[in-house]
Amino acid sequence: MLIPHSKVLPRKMPGSRLLPLVIAVNVYLASLAILGGLALIAATGQWASEMDQLVTVQVPPESGVSGDAVVKSVLGVLRDHPAVAQARALELSEMEALLAPWLGQSAAVRELPLPQLIDVEMRPEGDLDSLRNRLEAEFPGVELDDHRLWRDQMHSVATTARLVCLSLVVLISLAAIAVIIFATQASLESQNELVALMHLIGARNSFVAGEFQKYFLGIGVTGVLIGLVPVVLTIGLIIYFTGNDPAPWMGRLALGPTDYILAASPPLIAVLITMFTARITVLRTLAVLD
């Protein structure tokens, strides 16, 4: 086996028998939290980039009979402006569809003094302020909505969700550390005669700590392997039930190398936490012997 095992400690020690299961659960929960966080980041990133490119121009209804002419003029200004990639006035049916959730499908909607909406797609790095200034100067009453309120709210929600995911991972890690400290102390307690003997015949503290580290490395790897099974099953189930398009709630799930490293981090972190928590606990305990 690739994992080194201790030559002096017993194969099983009291206090650590259920530790692989605890680590497995922690790995599963941490992986879910990170996967959820990645999905949120992907979704909000996609929404934000789309919203950053889209603005809406409203031509108010009091423009009167000459309203169509104003809309044409606004469209002309928009299409000539260097910051604009394209601009399109919404059809009446499209505006009715937008209002349907609030006003229903009534024909009376057509009688309402609705503003004319123009969808504008900005060029990347397009100067929005210059466009706004131009419209305000030439068409008083015409408004440019850059969806800043929605965008800010979405950023706020995404940031909160990310912090929640991060907090979950930190809490799960802290819980794992606490359990491992307890298990290491219990294992040390069960082997205090052996530890004292090794100490008296000249073992360095680092050697004793290294032996416990090897033991807990084996436990950590076992726990990680057990924990990875439900992680893989969960991902498989999500993909299975969402068919070929898991995108609706996960954005495009376009994961990059950093995302894969993040997604793979709980098992690695679990193994490292297990090893080093055990090592530090043993070193702290042995330090008082001299």
Partner: peptide, 27 residues
């Protein structure tokens, strides 16, 4: 640099005779 024969032997029960004797070299 000190070898000790303890009154109560202090042999390690989960190690074999070979492993017990080899312990000082192993550590």
């Amino acid at each position: 640099r000190v070898g000790v024969v303890f009154q109560d032997f202090r042999l390690v029960s989960h190690l074999t005779v070979f492993e017990n004797v080899a312990l000082p070299l192993s550590i």
